[in-house]
Design a protein around this nucleic acid. Structure first.
Length: 548
RNA sequence: CUCCUGGUAGCUCAGCUGGAUAGAGCAUCUGCCUUCUAAGCAGAGGGUCGCAGGUUCGAAUCCUGCCCAGGAGGCCA
């Protein structure tokens, strides 16, 4: 409908004067006094042209051609143009939705892109915790959304299986491993070691698998690979439980691979123009590209920094020919972005093609109190523990319900509750209720005729029905907005709202009645609600059970 | 000290690319189950949109300053 009004406005204005770069905003109105749709174009244009907005609006309205789908057009307030649509026009979207039998999705991107989205990428030095869960939920939902709207999306996890932290992990496990053979480890400096119980469990596992072969480590790489592999198995299992599935896992160590030689390549790229040696280290002159200070690529002890391999990783991503790269990072990395962008520019790649989304912290609330967390001391709640406690659906919904760049307080008690307080259950309940109505219909030996329903949609004319018809079309707007802004939380709010409208409708009147035409029309509306809830929940990757 | 986020109802948050009377949920109070799932519904109260200026027909939304909270500023990752 919006598109049709848009067309109408453009042609009306073009009839009046030559107009360049018209950006017309059309919004659904909040109150019915203002009609169905409204545009402020007259006020915007009047400002540009130094005219009186009301006068201009009047002229625009007068130059509209008569259309049967418009009941009336009004000038209101300081210059709004309000469109009152005929009933038929309001049913247009509904019919589209219902005609589309298979996978219904209301929005398709005009310029389809090939996108690489990288998220989670948690260091394999410990299990995933509740903070990672948020990035995982968001990344997977956003990927689904972008896929559904017509893009090609590859989901990637970058595995930091190289460098200092990895070494510390290996040492941590090795010490525990030695203890299992009653070997004295008191001389080992373990202040920086990882301390969680998973270290001990991993040591036991390795003892079982490999017996005493690693008491004296001959091949450190073999030991590290074994440990990383075990850690990643655990992480993948958790992700899998959480309905997060990656297309690819990219190893940092690949960048150091002698054949691939990605690190050397980047050093060559940067060497002549953009790097210098100081105090025995090799630096990247990132200040040349807007960063606060220059950054070290190779430390004075000859170790490559994480930053260096990250440049190589980004270069590799760019070379894989995607139209767009998306990074989903924890917000504690936001200071890291300028140097990465600097490196990208230095490599003569286009930083515009890299979009970084930051995910804020998560704190857990239980019985009204905050649970404190810190990764190093292993004083954290793992994602597995959270999933066990609240379930996958509730966890995903609560993670996604808030704008991603805003800190999240995750209320465990609310997530567990199974009543209307809990939005997940509330939405799922609406879906299940519709399914239950369909079953009841069959039980009473009545047959649902979709065609008859569609033909009789105009029988639906009470207030809650008209409201639902209108808000079903909102879904399209919400999805479009989410695709544009790379966000998903509006879907959560929308679904709760739609569910609420349905529950209200359900309570206000009996759906199953003896008037066949009306009944089919009502069930057609229910089907539309059902499809919309399903579609939205699919984006969030949350189940819609038929029975609760 | 510098930079980044945020400050909206008692609580948790939407709204922020300027639009018409600022919205949800929770919590509180009052009603509704012999009828399709009460895991539900109907109704009520609750606001100086952190403070002060500015921009304009119009500001929660944009700009400036200040206050408060959290985060970032390694040859860690």
């Amino acid at each position: 409908m919006k598109d049709k009004i848009h067309e109408l406005l453009v042609s009306a204005i073009n009839d009046l004067y030559e107009s360049k770069d018209l950006s017309i905003e059309i919004v659904k109105t909040k109150s019915e006094e203002h009609g169905d749709w409204s545009s402020n174009i007259a006020m915007i244009e009047a400002k540009k042209r130094g005219e009186n907005p009301k006068e201009l609006a009047k002229k625009i309205i007068n130059s509209f051609s008569k259309e049967d789908w418009i009941e009336k057009i009004e000038l209101a307030g300081p210059g709004f143009i309000n469109f009152f649509l005929s009933k038929k026009a309001n049913l247009k979207y509904l019919k589209e939705l219902l005609d589309n039998k298979e996978s219904f999705f209301p929005y398709k991107e005009k310029n389809k892109k090939n996108i690489l989205i990288e998220y989670v990428s948690s260091n394999p030095t410990g299990p995933l915790h509740v903070g990672h869960g948020r990035g995982a939920a968001f990344g997977s939902a956003l990927s689904y959304l972008l896929k559904k709207s017509g893009n090609k999306v590859t989901e990637e996890y970058y595995v930091n299986d190289q460098g200092l932290q990895t070494k510390i992990l290996a040492d941590s496990v090795h010490m525990k491993y030695l203890e299992k053979f009653n070997i004295d480890t008191s001389k080992i400096d373990s202040t920086n070691f990882y301390k969680g119980s998973y270290i001990d469990e991993l040591a036991s596992k390795i003892k079982n698998l490999k017996k005493d072969t690693f008491i004296k480590i001959k091949n450190e790489k073999e030991f590290i690979d074994l440990i990383i592999n075990e850690m990643m198995l655990g992480i993948k299992e958790t992700l899998n439980n959480f309905k997060v599935n990656f297309d690819s896992f990219f190893s940092e160590s690949y960048l150091y691979d002698k054949k691939a030689n990605k690190i050397r390549e980047v050093l060559e790229d940067l060497k002549s123009d953009h790097s210098f040696e100081k105090e025995g280290a090799l630096w990247f002159k990132s200040t040349k590209f807007g960063d606060d200070k220059d950054r070290v690529l190779i430390r004075s002890d000859n170790q490559e920094t994480y930053f260096l391999s990250d440049i190589a990783y980004h270069k590799d991503k760019f070379q894989r020919n995607y139209d767009e790269l998306i990074n989903i990072w924890g917000s504690d990395h936001h200071g890291y972005l300028p140097r990465v962008k600097a490196a990208i520019e230095a490599l003569k790649l286009n930083p515009e093609n890299l979009k970084t989304i930051f995910i804020q912290f998560v704190s857990l609330i239980k019985k009204g109190k905050k649970i404190s967390m810190s990764t190093r001391s292993a004083d954290f709640v793992t994602l597995n523990q959270l999933l066990e406690e609240v379930g996958v659906d509730a966890a995903r919904f609560f993670y996604l319900t808030k704008k991603s760049d805003q800190a999240l307080e995750f209320d465990i008690d609310l997530a567990i509750s199974q009543d209307k307080n809990n939005p997940v259950y509330y939405i799922q309940y609406a879906y299940a209720r519709i399914c239950s109505l369909e079953k009841e219909l069959k039980k009473r030996e009545m047959i649902f005729d979709l065609k008859e329903g569609i033909d009789n949609l105009d029988l639906l004319e009470n207030k809650s029905e008209l409201e639902i018809i209108s808000s079903l079309e909102d879904y399209k707007i919400i999805i479009e907005q989410c695709c544009k802004n790379y966000e998903v939380h509006p879907i959560c709010f929308y679904l709760r709202d739609l569910a609420s409208k349905f529950h209200s409708y359900y309570n206000s009147e009996t759906i199953i009645n003896d008037d066949q035409k009306l009944r089919n029309a009502k069930f057609t509306l229910l089907l539309a609600i059902k499809k919309t809830i399903k579609s939205g929940m699919d984006v969030l990757i949350i189940e819609t059970p038929e029975k609760m």
